[in-house]
């Protein structure tokens, strides 16, 4: 095979792989992307039901019920609105009332957010960016807080 033709074969193979990759990426985005909502968004906006989404904010004080079976309930607040969250499983170590939290799950018919994953944080001073975002949107956050 002539070097020119060889190069053509390689370039064509590369391009077709690239095309395939682009197609797969676009298709996978459809399924793999979860949008972020603040508690205010959930109350005010139309939120698609049955779709995976993420919410963030603070764990509302005195809303946490744990130790009564496997299902844990608490409320996530951006200090303007709050949503009830239900989670079956074991909470992360640093999950505490008054702290930043991000939950991944679905919003049910009755307005309860059923979480399949709850992310807190790795250290004392860390605030998940999405939790900070929710507070910012609700006007309850000034730059420099919590850092």
């Amino acid at each position: 095979m002539k070097p020119k033709k060889r190069r053509l074969v390689i370039i064509l193979a590369g391009l077709s792989l690239f095309g395939l990759a682009t197609g797969l990426v676009l298709a996978a985005f459809d399924e793999g992307v979860t949008y972020f909502y603040s508690p205010t968004d959930l109350v005010e906006k139309q939120v698609p039901q049955g779709r995976m989404l993420r919410i963030g904010g603070l764990v509302e004080e005195e809303s946490l019920v744990r130790g009564e079976g496997l299902t844990v309930t608490f409320r996530v607040t951006d200090l303007a609105e709050s949503v009830p969250v239900q989670y079956s499983g074991i909470l992360p170590d640093l999950f505490r009332e008054g702290q930043g939290v991000v939950a991944v799950g679905k919003l049910e018919q009755d307005g309860v957010f059923v979480a399949s994953e709850v992310l807190a944080k790795h250290d004392e001073n860390y605030m998940p960016p999405e939790a900070a975002e929710a507070l910012k949107k609700a006007g309850q956050w000034t730059e420099g807080d919590g850092q």
């Binding site: 985005f29 399924e31 793999g32 979860t34």
Partner: peptide, 27 residues
């Protein structure tokens, strides 16, 4: 992608494991 989306001010989102599994293994 989530950082890019955030930088242009579009609604925040995140890309999870389903995306990565669907694009990683076929190659």
């Amino acid at each position: 992608y989530p950082l890019f989306i955030d930088a242009i001010g579009a609604p925040k989102l995140s890309v999870g494991a389903p995306y990565f599994n669907a694009t990683f293994w076929p190659f």
